[in-house]
Design a protein around this nucleic acid. Structure first.
Lengths: 258, 258
DNA sequence: ACAATTGCTTTTTTCGAAACTTTCCGCGAT
DNA sequence: ATCGCGGAAAGTTTCGAAAAAAGCAATTGT
């Protein structure tokens, strides 16, 4: 029988923490990961039988994980007729980008306002780690640890925001955007751009230049969005028409003013 | 055996919809309701055995519902050591209020910008229903249908917002605030205030006076928050000190500037 | 021809018990 | 008295199978 404490090792998530995990949480992480890297593709049906075989768990933990993922917008559940990986669409990409701009700017504003020495230190450290992973980039793309470092960097940027709610919403939107980000393989040129954006962001945050930092984060997010839009157009032209059924504010300005 | 289609009748949620429900979704609604009306009190432990008896379901559906509620912030799950109703605190109330101001204002701005005749019509209707339930108010408080009408009204206000994401976040925060709202029993004076605030909100939205509408919604939210703060202080003075461990921006201004 | 019905298969949902972990309590040693 | 150490009790988590529903295809009646 599997002892719970072995879980961490089996699933490769092994590190110091005591066994504060469950099968359900473990399969949640693995499912989320597989969805984010598109091992499970958008719109793909998720049948319990297949998932049971793939992850070696029973339906109980699976259902828990799927419910959680549905609340994160990564899975769609239709009662009594199964689950699928959430669809991606141009409309959703634009929506996600605009919403991120709103949330990230406010979180960053607060973080810069409230952050102290320790925040600065963690931010510098996170930026350093991020930059380090970028050195390992190959022609085929960024190394797997980049995603983690990138996430940690943006976390660190807003870590001093005094509102736990805002931070959580921000983190969720980041994950959501990650799915789209994965679609676009960065060219070396783009990578250098991103890299310097992160540097500028760090510097203006550290120097408490709020106005500049907010402008930078907005451009950063919208650039990421634009890149993903292009990738989406190339990859799946069918997704574009689906978006045309509703008003799409431009990616280049604040969303939604009449 | 219980046929699924009977569920709607048993749980009193009976209406036209076909049987698009499951035991898990049903118990989710009931749990949420009980938490919102404080039948299950903040910090109260939720043991599976008790919940099984109370709602007449097995652990499977229960766990699903609890995971979902945790993602809504109404329940806290500590892996391997059980669940409890999420705590309420002054800090969380303030956080929720500030975040709501940010989100509701943006959603309302977009809604006013994008809304058409049909949006106007639904808004007028929702306001009318809300006003009607307020006539049934007694000294002991508002009738149960007020909560529904109130929720529907604020939904209608932002229904034309083109961002599904923003609307969803808004709805979640509304629920979250509802817990605190329930704490404060409205005096007739306050009720009249609220009532006229809703009227003014409707009118400025209909006349597309965006600036005024945004100012009104912000005041509306902050007033609600202030009322709840007072109720919280009276009810549970212990909650206040807990908040003092972190910086608390004033309820009267935008949160978080240094 | 074609819509509705019936029976069969696939899939989801729920249950009840077993497996496992945490908590609590009594007891002896320091 | 306090601390540490079993060991039972309480609670959570997971499993495997049964139950219920949805999907499908052939069949029947019009």
């Amino acid at each position: 029988m599997i002892l719970y404490q072995e879980l961490a090792e089996i699933s490769g998530v092994a590190h110091g923490r005591r066994g504060e995990t469950t099968l359900a949480l473990d399969v949640l992480r693995r499912l989320r990961h597989d969805i984010l890297i598109c091992a499970l593709r958008p719109r793909q049906r998720l049948r319990f039988q297949e998932l049971k075989d793939r992850y070696r768990v029973n339906v109980g933990p699976l259902r828990e994980a799927l419910v959680q993922l549905a609340s994160e917008g990564l899975v769609e559940i239709e009662p009594r007729r199964g689950c699928r990986v959430a669809a991606i669409s141009l409309a959703d990409l634009i929506d996600t980008t605009n919403t991120r701009v709103l949330i990230e700017k406010e979180a960053l504003r607060q973080s810069i306002g409230e952050g102290g020495i320790e925040w600065e230190a963690q931010l510098v450290a996170a930026f350093h780690r991020l930059a380090a992973t970028e050195l390992n980039a190959t022609d085929s793309g960024l190394p797997p640890e980049w995603a983690v470092a990138h996430r940690d960097f943006h976390d660190a940027l807003t870590a001093a925001c005094g509102s736990p709610l805002l931070r959580e919403i921000r983190a969720r939107l980041f994950d959501r955007a990650n799915r789209y980000r994965m679609l676009s393989t960065l060219s070396p040129t783009h990578l250098r751009e991103k890299s310097s954006e992160h540097r500028n962001l760090t510097e203006s945050a550290l120097s408490r230049n709020t106005g500049q930092a907010l402008a930078l984060i907005e451009r950063h997010l919208r650039d990421t969005g634009r890149l993903a839009v292009e990738a989406l157009r190339d990859l799946d032209p069918a997704a574009a028409p689906a978006a045309s059924t509703q008003a799409i504010p431009s990616l280049n300005q604040h969303g939604g003013q009449s």
